[in-house]
Simulated scan of single mutants.
Amino acid sequence: MHVSWYFDFISPFAYLQLPKVLALRERVAIAPVPILFAAVLDKVGQIGPAEIPAKRTFMYRHIQWTARREGTPLSFPPKHPFNPLQSLRLAIACGNRWDAIAAIYRHIWRDGKDGDTLESLAGLAEQLGIDDIATATAEPQVKNALRTNTEQALADGVFGVPTLRIGDTMFWGNDATAMAVEYLDDPAMFEAAEYRRVDELPVGVERKR
């Protein structure tokens, strides 16, 4: 069964899920797929959770609470949301290696450093074997890979990050990790009657947009 993990470094929830995904790799191969979350939001017609002031306050508190509860070291970067483009391209330039992805996440979300400029990422890039980050992240194949990843994610039905895709089934968010693990144990779980019923539940009312 093919498993993919769609992520964007802008997401602290992806950082919180990362240790669980790494642990899950012990039982199933997982392909990491960096995508641009902002492009996904634009395509599906949503705004980011950090763009709603009251939701932003709650979300940041919930992230800190979750990290403390799970024992995950976390320190927000100097600003958020930030532009993750260079971080995403760095991951691709590193061949989407899991160690590189984890190092970039630690740089931003554990150590609380900027992840949006070449200058802020240059030292990390050198540690990852990229001596000239400007050249590496500007390569056409790197830029095209990120664009292709994002387009494919949208084609697959991805609407947020992080998302685990197991076969053709999507599991969105850090809090869906246990659900994804249970699905791996029992791929027929959604064939139960009530799951099938809610999959086809009719819409009762639609808001005017």
Rank of each mutant, 00 (worst) to 15 (best):
V158N: 00
E191P: 08
G129T: 08
A180Y: 05
D156T: 08
G160R: 01
N174G: 03
A192E: 15
P140H: 01
D131M: 11
A125M: 03
T163S: 06
Y183P: 05
A103M: 11
Q141L: 11
E119A: 15
A102S: 15
Q141W: 10
Y195L: 03
E119M: 07
I108F: 07
A102H: 11
S120A: 15
A176V: 08
G173E: 01
D111I: 14
E126N: 12
A102P: 08
V142R: 12
L201K: 13
D131R: 14
E139F: 10
K143P: 00
A134F: 05
K143N: 07
L184M: 11
A176W: 10
N149V: 06
T169A: 06
L164V: 01
D186N: 15
F159S: 01
A125R: 00
R165P: 02
R197A: 14
L164P: 00
R165I: 04
W109Q: 06
E194M: 12
T135R: 15
P202G: 10
V142S: 13
S120F: 00
T148G: 03
V181S: 04
M189N: 10
R197D: 08
I130K: 03
I166Y: 03
A145N: 05
V161Q: 05
E182I: 10
G112E: 05
A134C: 06
G112M: 08
A138D: 14
W109H: 04
E191I: 11
A125Y: 00
F171H: 02
E200A: 15
N174M: 06
D156P: 10
A176T: 12
T163M: 06
D186L: 06
D185R: 13
G157S: 00
G173H: 01
Q152D: 12
K113W: 09
D199N: 14
G112N: 04
R165F: 08
V158K: 01
A178S: 13
L184Y: 05
E182C: 07
G112R: 10
A193P: 06
D131C: 05
L184P: 02
I108N: 07
D116T: 09
H107V: 12
F159K: 05
A145M: 04
G173N: 05
I108A: 07
H107T: 07
A125W: 00
E200G: 10
G167P: 04
T117Y: 07
E119L: 09
G112L: 06
R197K: 14
F159E: 04
P140A: 06
F159R: 04
N149Q: 05
I133T: 07
I104A: 09
D199W: 12
A193H: 13
Y195F: 15
L154F: 03
D185H: 08
A178F: 06
F171S: 01
V158S: 02
N174V: 04
